[in-house]
Simulated assay, not measured.
Amino acid sequence: MKIGLTGSIASGKSTVARMFADLGVKVVDTDVIARRVVEPGSPGLSRLVKEFGRSLLTDNGSLNRRYLGELIFADPEKRQRLNQIMHPMIMAVVSDEMQNYARQHPDGMIMVDVPLLIEANLRSWFDQVVLVYVPVPVQLARLRARDGLDEETAQLRMRSQMSPDEKRHHADFVIDNSGSPAATRAQVDKVFHCLQTLSSRAGKGHTCK
């Protein structure tokens, strides 16, 4: 079974992904892949420099992620151009990993953490979509604390994505990560067992919420 894991910025997707991994789910992190495809000397980094200029590079030739973030979060057109470059490269790697895993584990469960799964219209890639949800006030507080941002900058980054409440309508399962770790883990366990049922032959054609 192919599962998409998504959620807005600072929702806690990585925490939830680790919980699923602890239960034996193969987890693919597109943030890790995104870093890999723009390593120094890579074709991906060359494409970004060609599009946005050499100011993207640090003194040692690596990508200046802070500068890139400031550049694209304030400019929807540049953000779209970045996504048009990055998404095909990232999803090509994801496709290879999913195919390889399916060959080795035909009955296995693979989960791909894709922050912009819904915005990028990738719903059809997956059998089920799990959303990690937090209310906007919680999201804002966590983002400011995590990245050391002022409120205006944090709000700008949040507005660059679909709102958490709107994303709920596109998910098969919603995990509310606004409470304690134990509360989140209980929801993960429930969703995991439900996904197991759906992926089994006995679960075909059944719903489980």
Rank of each mutant, 00 (worst) to 15 (best):
I3Q: 00
I3V: 14
I3M: 03
G4L: 02
L5G: 07
A10C: 12
A10I: 06
S11K: 06
G12Y: 08
R18I: 04
M19I: 09
F20K: 08
A21D: 05
G24D: 07
V25Q: 01
V27R: 01
D29F: 04
T30S: 12
R36I: 03
V37L: 10
V37C: 13
V38M: 13
V38I: 14
E39M: 13
P40R: 10
G41Q: 13
P43D: 13
G44N: 14
L45R: 04
S46P: 02
S46N: 12
L48A: 10
V49L: 13
E51Q: 14
E51C: 10
F52R: 09
F52H: 10
R54I: 03
L57K: 09
T58Q: 11
D59R: 15
G61K: 15
L63I: 05
N64V: 13
N64H: 14
R66A: 15
Y67F: 15
Y67A: 14
L68M: 14
G69F: 10
E70H: 14
E70L: 15
E70Q: 15
E70N: 15
L71Q: 05
I72V: 15
I72R: 00
F73D: 06
A74H: 10
P76V: 07
K78C: 11
Q80P: 08
R81H: 12
R81K: 15
Q84Y: 08
P88W: 00
I90L: 05
A92I: 01
V93R: 14
V93I: 12
D96F: 05
D96T: 13
D96C: 03
E97K: 12
E97F: 00
Q99D: 12
Y101M: 00
A102F: 05
A102W: 02
R103N: 11
H105Q: 14
D107F: 01
I110R: 11
M111S: 14
V112Y: 01
L116W: 01
L117W: 04
I118M: 04
E119A: 06
A120T: 08
R123E: 13
F126D: 04
F126A: 00
V130C: 08
V130I: 15
L131H: 12
V132C: 11
V132A: 05
Y133I: 05
V138T: 14
V138G: 03
Q139H: 09
Q139V: 07
A141L: 05
R142C: 04
L143I: 09
L143N: 04
D147V: 03
G148L: 08
T153I: 05
Q155H: 09
M158W: 02
R159E: 15
R159Y: 10
R159F: 00
Q161N: 10
P164V: 11
K167L: 00
R168P: 09
H169E: 15
H170K: 10
A171L: 07
F173P: 01
P181V: 12
R185G: 10
A186I: 05
K190E: 08
F192M: 03
F192G: 01
L195Q: 02
T197I: 01
A202F: 07
K204C: 03
T207K: 13
C208F: 02
